[in-house]
């Protein structure tokens, strides 16, 4: 009933539009540079995995992936663990300045990364965290923590308050209630929030690049190395690009049933 005429055609065309550029990237990653530059082929005529082999055997390449994953995971853990109690507080209680605080958090989610690039550089250099995964993880908190609070608040509000009251009457202490009852109840919400933290930390480049130089260089920054004196190494660039899509595709699979609700920030 809630569909429109010609919906099959519309959704198919749109999905093709989404997949075509990605297909082109995958296609190119399996080609040699000669084939890419000399001819226009819709699929690789001499398929090669040399580009991937190079990434997995060259430390400067694969360490980029490891560095990226490090700060993404640290950031997700910090964001979720500080956001959980706050989400509960915003959902259940009124307190001095709660609305202003919520708005302030929201406005930080919207703050342009370009504004913070330079001050973050100064700040993390001053406390000797520059060029470590911790610097990037903490910097990404500025948009991920508010987002996590926002999403989790929606999910906590979906839990009836009677459950809290019953638990407290049964003699549960607050920490015990929180960990034993509330967290399992909003497990899917935590999954969604973690997914979003992962996603926004994984896709961000400007801060990650500004706050690292050698040791913690993220994969996105390593990719700029494919420009060399001999011209662009297109095949290698494409292969590196394909590999950055894979972690995202894997995590979507786990939260696919909650994606829609998660994007509505737990507010549908």
């Amino acid at each position: 009933m809630h569909s429109i005429p010609g919906r099959r055609l519309i959704i198919s065309l749109f999905l093709i539009f989404l997949l075509l550029p990605i297909y082109w990237l995958v296609n190119m990653s399996f080609k040699t540079n000669e084939e890419i530059v000399s001819t226009m082929t819709l699929w690789p005529h001499q398929p090669t995995i040399a580009n991937y082999v190079r990434i997995f055997t060259d430390e400067s390449w694969y360490s980029g992936y490891i560095n990226s994953l490090k700060y993404v995971v640290i950031n997700t853990i910090i964001s979720i663990s500080v956001a959980l109690p706050a989400a509960y507080a915003f959902s259940r209680y009124r307190f001095l300045g709660d609305k202003h605080l919520f708005f302030w958090l929201l406005s930080n989610r919207m703050a342009p990364a370009a504004v913070y690039a330079l001050p973050f550089f100064n700040l993390y250099s001053a406390i000797n965290l520059f060029d470590t995964p911790w610097a990037v993880a903490l910097a990404h908190c500025i948009f991920n923590v508010p987002l996590a609070v926002w999403i989790l608040e929606g999910f906590v509000s979906g839990v009836p308050r009677e459950i809290d009251e019953t638990a407290f009457l049964d003699g549960y202490s607050f920490p015990r209630f929180f960990l034993k009852i509330l967290v399992p109840l909003i497990a899917s919400g935590i999954g969604v929030a973690a997914f979003f933290c992962f996603m926004f930390s994984w896709v961000e480049l400007l801060l990650a690049r500004t706050l690292t130089s050698v040791n913690a260089k993220p994969i996105a920054a390593v990719m700029t190395r494919t420009v060399s004196a001999a011209g662009m190494d297109w095949g290698l660039l494409a292969a590196a690009g394909v590999l950055t899509i894979i972690p995202g595709a894997l995590v979507i699979w786990f939260v696919r049933n909650y994606i829609a609700r998660g994007f509505a920030l737990g507010r549908v």
Partner: peptide, 16 residues
């Protein structure tokens, strides 16, 4: 299948 495909571009790093 549609949901996963739709979400795919959102998870690609911006420089990619």
């Amino acid at each position: 299948a549609c949901l996963v495909t739709l979400a795919l571009p959102l998870l690609i790093p911006w420089n990619v």
